[in-house]
Amino acid sequence: QNRSAGSQAYCRLQELTINLRYDFIIVPVEYTANNCEGPCRRPLSTRSPGYSSHTVLLLEMQARGTPLRRSPCCVPVKYSSQDVILFTGEGLQVTTYPEMVVEECGCR
């Protein structure tokens, strides 16, 4: 489920809930994982802050008419971790998984 419907003006963080209804995951049933959505266009500096010098030069190449095999893409640039309580077959296990929740997005 997403926070807002309409099309995005530029790359940014959007709320996304991911369902964890696997029989070995006891808690949580779902979690707020978020996603990065929206186009990567120039100028980046006034919009999403999470871009690299490399991205700026790729967009510059495109603007000059050189086609790219892969255009800059709106992706997670900062994550946080998430606790998950699993059933191992014998008992429960608390595991903290890294890079589960998107905190910041950027054009890469």
């Binding site: 029989d23 070995f24 995951i25 006891i26 949580p28 049933v29 779902e30 979690y31 707020t32 059933f87």
Partner: peptide, 27 residues
């Protein structure tokens, strides 16, 4: 639980079951 954003909306503990390897957990 570490987050308020993982479906923690009810003031009361309304459990849901999960059936795994012959064991039933309510959470």
């Amino acid at each position: 639980w570490g987050s308020d954003r993982d479906g923690c909306d009810s003031p009361a503990c309304k459990t849901s079951p999960v059936h795994t390897a012959g064991v039933i957990f309510q959470r």
